[in-house]
Design a binder for these strands. Structure first.
Length: 332
DNA sequence: GCGACAG
DNA sequence: ATCTTGTCGC
């Protein structure tokens, strides 16, 4: 049961109801008209959310919505989540939409775009730009303890794990916390999905006297289009040093060909080095970036010191393990 | 065929 | 991230 207890770090993270907003958009599409995944994403405030729109529209619980009125930008009707393209075309034709071959024809004649102009993701982007000015890049302070944090999901719940470790990466103690998931995964907006769980588990760690000198976060720091990935965002909110470690590349350019274990190369975004790709295994690369109150050299030093025989630095590997165990235990 | 965007 | 069958590695 998610606890509603007050958090020590005032939750300065307003979470918009993106899914409810998307539902209202889809409900607005009139019979005899169509819109596109892209147009819905733009109405949400970011064309980059198109894939999220597609994933959301095929969920079983959303099939009572007029999902057949959402087509590809090419005019291709696509197909229904639980049906064929012929069925989707037939539904559109029954509403007066002309379909030739697999396509709505001509698309502009039927295209519906008169959506509300709130664009919630645009507001989040502005918030990111504001917060990015508060990120401080400086060498990490001398540290004795480090904590790794990660989140696992199951049903509508998120379980965050916080594992405290020493300079050798040996686990000292851990806590977990469970919160309700209130925001979907949309690339570059991960903070709004995961930070509520992080704040909850950090509060537990604080109350248990397990505060660490540095926080390792599963995700990026400034390796982000607006230089404010979840590690930086969290660091600014709690005013503590954070370092981001991701298992895959979000953005930026890096050539990883021919890297040897232990080697790292800069990840460059818009001409700026925002992180490093570090080879931690024969076929494993992780992406390190400063979060807050950290810089790239000290972040790399910290992470390389904590990497043992696994791809991830020990505290994160343990946090991942603990979160996974905790989320499994919920169902058993 | 292109592009491929953390969790 | 999660779901989930079968599976061999640049």
């Amino acid at each position: 049961m998610p606890s509603g207890e007050a958090n020590h770090w005032e939750t300065a993270l307003a979470i918009p109801d993106i899914e409810g907003f998307l539902r209202s958009l889809v409900e607005r599409i009139p019979p005899g008209r169509v819109t596109t995944f892209r147009a819905l994403a733009e109405a949400l405030g970011d064309p980059g959310a198109a894939r999220f729109v597609g994933q959301w529209l095929v969920r079983p619980e959303n099939q009572s919505l007029p999902v057949h009125r959402v087509v590809h930008a090419s005019g291709d009707v696509g197909r229904l989540a639980f049906g064929t393209w012929e069925e989707k075309a037939a539904r559109l034709q029954a509403e007066g939409v002309r379909v030739v071959g697999h396509k709505v024809d001509p698309l502009p004649r039927y295209f519906f775009w008169d959506f509300p102009t709130q664009r919630p993701l645009e507001a989040l982007r502005k918030e990111q730009e504001r917060l990015a000015t508060q990120v401080r890049l400086s060498p990490l302070p001398a540290w004795e303890t480090v904590a790794g944090v990660d989140v696992a999901y199951r049903d509508g719940e998120a379980v965050a794990a916080y594992v405290l470790a020493d300079r050798q990466g040996e686990p000292l103690d851990f806590v977990t916390a469970e919160v309700e998931v209130k925001f979907p995964y949309i690339p570059t907006y991960l903070s709004w999905r995961e930070i509520p769980a992080y704040l909850a588990v950090l509060e537990k760690a604080r109350q248990a006297g397990l505060e660490a000198d540095v926080l390792l976060v599963d995700g990026n720091g400034i390796l982000h289009p607006k230089r404010i990935g979840v590690a930086s965002h969290l660091g600014v909110l709690i005013g503590r040093p954070t370092v981001g470690v991701a298992k895959r590349r979000l953005c930026g350019e890096v050539n990883t060909t021919g890297m040897v274990v232990g080697e790292w190369r800069p990840v460059v975004l818009e001409g700026e080095t925002v992180g490093a790709a570090l080879r931690t295994g024969r076929n494993q690369t992780i992406f390190i970036s400063p979060g807050h109150l950290a810089d790239l050299p000290s972040s790399l030093e910290l992470v390389t010191q904590l990497v043992r025989e696994h791809p991830l630095p020990e505290p994160l590997r343990w946090a991942h393990e603990v979160a996974g165990e905790a989320v499994q235990a919920k169902g058993t």
